[in-house]
Design a protein around this nucleic acid. Structure first.
Length: 745
DNA sequence: GGGGGAACTTAGCAGCAATTAT
DNA sequence: ATAATTGCTGCTAAGTTCCCCC
């Protein structure tokens, strides 16, 4: 059925208000010198770039461009067989997308298994696969154990330390045994997410605790005892008083409106001006509480921790098809004042307390249905196994639905993630054709086709997001590719020695600024010029294009293909290619290898514009590190002279004295130790400096096929723990388990 | 073909926990 | 033992995509 839709796609056009003259010709002009189709495909290489993109609120544009990187993909021609679903190692190649399954309900792939109906294993999940389970866990995973504490606790005896270490290893093994190796099992039929689901329902935040009698709110200097509801909201505001945004106009106005809505009639009559409110005592009380909590004794903290642990034990897990799975967010979001990112028009509004009466529960009919808190009932209990959520409620700020779902290490999330990367890998086989096509489309007579082509070119080349339309006034003003406006780009016929440069400057997701100057092919450049003609800065650049149209087109080119697949594809491809470039077998030092890995990772983060605010203590900690390096250098110099001296002594006094020889050896070792440690520090400094404004986590977690990293680790002899922490290893357990050294994305 | 809802992924950051320095 | 620093986790906002309805 996907097919038919695709055919229609072409007819769809969006007629926006702004009408432009079509210039069927504008781009007919032959491609000027610069880039040609070819060059887009293969050459432009990666970033050397420093990023210059900066967080929105910052005022000025940043100077220089990042040299954006164009992922090179041309080389991955290797035919990956791919398509047979093998559920074991290496090349799991093909996780049928639910898409694909739907589309081809009758194709062989499905034919093979879809009848399997009942995941027989109900009683014996994983049984048939035991053998795998046995053999895997023995691999490198634990070799690294050694890097644990080892010393530090000088109190403990060696025995104890050893014991502790062994215990840890044992626990690890145990955990590994218990792990649900879902990736070795057959998939369910399309659309079915689970067969059995049982849980305890979400965990609700504690009720509001009224203020003690000695803490007052004042209006115009007079103490006012607020009603419970109004008081609670006042406290929300008071708690944030140190925060900058309680000074923002929009925030204050929204808050005040929300607050007044919670007041009694009398309170509304009395309290008319936020500026006349004094939350000082409440604020002070709050700070005191925080401080108090901070000063709790070890034991008290432990008690709290254990109490917390109990809650997690009870509410934090569910049973899904006979496996215990961790829930990602089992806690209902507590009420508070909404803080959107960027210039959010709704910042400061009251985010209401959620009651069980607002919550829909989803679980198996035959499961033990969660019991609502005493005196309450659920909004609804349903049994829908085509969705993955356990509970949901509607939030009052945007009116959107919030879900309780499983943790990233769960089968449900993991399988989807795997599938995502398989789709991206499939793009590899189509991408050349698609690129050729959009270059041709840039010459189309139809404006909408050319717009589509140029937009796709950006998405591919720059890894921009699709960019849906957003309702004005509901959210911060941010854009993505399809929603770019004329004001967001500037064309430069010539810039910094390059032809046809497009300067991007806009706020993207989370109001993160995207700033980039990019040389583009002249076909694209000429089209852009035309798209911008007779438009106001606030008009849409691609006024005949929507994400829906773009995605329809894409899915006609390859099943499962959407705009965001390009981001995944280009990110993963870049990582793989950068790893090849930046690391090699001759590297001996782990620190060195890791720097290479991080740099490859960084190239991706730059491509995807994953930024972070420079850590508050950045300068300081950088200086500290530098100081350490200096002192280590001195130490090294000293060690070297001592070594020379020792050598000399040894020579002069002859080899007669074995002590001198030993001394020489000792000094040698000291020099080595010292210089290694220096190298490590220097590498660390470089890494940190380069990472100042770049967040590696997002790409690592969401865009980089973990199998690339796992394979790299194996080839380079780097323990996986150096690259993935515990959480990440859990999330990527499937990849760690199945990936062979020779994996190619 | 557009609007809106539903479901799910992607995103940065605050605050706490673990680790290391003093 | 305490303070400073770093690393993670949890949180929840903000996207994308699909689908249904008109």
């Amino acid at each position: 059925m996907g097919r038919e839709k695709d055919v229609k796609e072409d007819r769809k056009t969006k007629h926006k208000v702004t009408k432009l003259n079509m210039r069927p010709n504008g781009n007919e002009v032959a491609e000027a010198g610069g880039d040609s189709a070819k060059s887009t495909k293969s050459t432009e290489k990666t970033p050397n770039g420093k990023i210059k993109k900066i967080k929105a609120p910052k005022t000025e544009k940043l100077e220089s461009p990042s040299n954006f990187s164009e992922p090179d993909d041309g080389n991955f021609t290797t035919k990956k067989k791919g398509v047979k679903r093998r559920r074991t190692k290496d090349e799991p190649a093909d996780v049928p997308t639910s898409e694909a399954l739907k589309n081809s309900s009758s194709t062989k792939r499905n034919g093979g298994k879809h009848k399997k109906r009942h995941h027989s294993e109900e009683e014996s999940d994983g049984e048939p696969l035991k053998k795998h389970a046995k053999k895997k866990p023995k691999t490198d995973v634990k070799i690294e154990e050694g890097e644990q504490p080892v010393s530090k606790k000088s109190k403990k005896t060696k025995e104890e330390i050893k014991e502790a270490r062994e215990l840890k290893i044992r626990q690890k093994e145990e955990e590994e045994q218990k792990r649900w190796r879902w990736w070795e099992e057959e998939k369910y039929e399309a659309g079915v997410k689970w067969r059995f689901l049982e849980h305890k329902g979400p965990y609700f935040p504690p009720d509001y605790q009224p203020l003690p009698d000695n803490v007052h709110f004042y209006y115009k200097g007079e103490p006012v005892k607020l009603s419970l509801a109004a008081e609670e909201v006042a406290v929300f505001f008071a708690q944030m008083l140190d925060h900058e945004y309680t000074t923002k106009k929009v925030f204050r106005e929204n808050f005040f409106k929300s607050w007044r809505r919670e007041m009694t009639h009398e309170e509304q009559l009395l309290i008319q001006d936020l500026d006349k409110c004094d939350f000082g005592e409440i604020h002070a009380m709050h700070k005191a509480k925080v401080e108090e909590k901070r000063n709790l004794s070890k034991e008290e903290k432990l008690v709290l921790k254990e109490a917390n642990q109990k809650i997690v034990e009870e509410f934090g897990y569910c049973t899904l098809d006979h496996h215990r799975e961790r829930i990602g967010n089992f806690k209902i979001e507590p009420p508070g004042l909404f803080r959107g990112r960027g210039e959010h028009p709704k910042q400061g509004k009251l985010k209401k307390r959620i009651q069980p009466e607002d919550v829909i529960i989803n679980c198996s009919r035959e499961s033990c249905i969660p019991v609502p808190p005493a005196g309450h009932h659920w909004k609804e209990v349903r049994h829908d196994n085509t969705v993955t959520w356990l509970a949901s409620w509607t939030e009052n700020i945007q009116g959107s639905i919030k879900y309780v779902m499983l943790n990233a290490n769960s089968k449900l999330k993991g399988e989807k993630d795997w599938e995502k990367y398989e789709v991206a890998r499939k793009l590899k086989q189509h991408v050349d054709g698609i690129r050729e096509q959009y270059l041709i489309d840039m010459k189309s007579k139809e404006m909408r086709i050319r717009q589509r082509a140029v937009a796709l070119y950006f998405i591919d080349k720059l890894a921009l997001r699709a960019g849906n339309e957003k309702e004005e006034g509901e959210t911060a003003d941010t854009v993505g590719c399809c929603s770019l406006r004329v004001e967001h780009i500037t064309l430069h016929k010539q810039l910094d020695g390059n032809e046809c440069v497009v300067e991007f400057d806009f706020l993207g997701k989370d109001s993160i600024r995207y700033y980039n100057k990019v040389p583009v092919i002249s076909k694209a450049f000429k089209n852009l010029k035309i798209f911008m003609e007779n438009k106001d800065p606030g008009d849409e650049l691609f006024d005949r294009l929507t994400t829906t149209m773009l995605n329809k087109h894409l899915s006609s080119l390859m099943p499962g293909l959407t705009a965001k697949v390009f981001r995944t594809y280009n990110a993963s491809t870049t990582l793989q290619q950068q790893l090849k470039e930046l690391t090699n077998d001759s590297m001996v030092n782990d620190a060195e290898k890791l720097l290479g890995y991080n740099r490859a990772n960084r190239a991706v983060a730059i491509l995807c514009n994953h930024q972070r605010a420079p850590p508050k203590t950045f300068e300081q900690s950088m200086a500290n590190l530098q100081a350490k390096i200096t002192s280590r250098k001195e130490q090294l110099a000293l060690a070297k002279t001592e070594l020379e001296q020792a050598k000399k002594d040894a020579k002069v006094k002859g080899s007669s004295d074995p002590k001198l020889q030993i001394l020489v050896e000792k000094k040698k070792a000291a020099v080595k130790r010292c210089s290694e440690s220096l190298l490590k520090l220097e590498v660390q400094a470089t890494d940190r400096e380069e990472n100042k404004q770049i967040a590696l986590g997002t790409s690592k977690l969401n865009y980089l096929d973990p199998r690339i990293s796992v394979a790299w680790c194996k080839r380079m002899g780097v323990p996986i723990e150096k690259i993935y922490n515990k959480t990440q290893r859990d999330k990527f357990a499937w990849a760690i388990d199945m990936t062979e050294t020779n994996f190619e994305f």
